[in-house]
């Protein structure tokens, strides 16, 4: 049995430890804000926080998540008031919106560690998150906006 915490709630998983966290979140817990995009850790749509680190849940097995704290987009802020979410709305970042939860989770993890990122740090941190609609310039701007709004709060 594998015990994990998802958005602050203790969960017990009895199945195969090789199952990727992504499918547990989506199919079992119905937390569908974590998206399926590639299954190989290439697109970032499935990004969640594992003990505060941004990881790709499609290539994170449940056994490797055992005993750890997982935060999904649904747990980032219950009311959507995380500085990234606010900035994303302010700058109208989303087009289709499918990749944006993963983008926001990646950006939130960056800002938690680096409250005042440089443009190069943003590029580096966001390199694993694809957006086929092409919202990158706004994502970039929204991260700077969130950084400003958060006022360097760690």
């Amino acid at each position: 049995m594998i015990e994990i915490s998802v958005n602050g709630k203790g969960r017990k998983f009895e199945g195969d430890g090789d199952v990727p966290l992504l499918w547990y979140l989506r199919d079992e817990l119905e937390l569908t804000g974590t998206k399926f995009g590639c299954g190989m850790g290439l697109c970032g749509a499935c990004t969640v926080h594992l003990n505060g680190e941004a990881v790709r849940s499609c290539v994170t097995t449940l056994s490797s998540a055992a005993g750890k704290k997982i935060t999904t987009i649904e747990g980032l802020s219950p009311t959507g008031t995380h500085p990234c979410q606010v900035a994303w709305e302010k700058l109208n970042v989303a087009q289709c919106g499918y990749c944006q939860c993963g983008q926001i989770m990646q950006a939130a993890a960056l800002l938690a560690k680096t409250p005042r990122p440089t443009a190069a740090q943003i590029d580096e941190a966001m390199d694993g998150n694809l957006c086929r609609c092409g919202t990158y310039t706004r994502i970039h701007a929204a991260i700077l906006e969130a950084s400003k709004a958060a006022g360097g709060v760690k």
């Binding site: 937390l31 569908t32 804000g33 994303w88 109208n92 989303a94 919106g97 944006q100 939860c101 926001i104």
Partner: peptide, 26 residues
Amino acid sequence: AIVDQHKIVTGAAIFGQDMRRPGMLY
């Protein structure tokens, strides 16, 4: 703003991949 914006940034927007029905097989 687009009507779905808040749902998108909070993970509540439902895409085709997110649909489910009771008793559904994958």
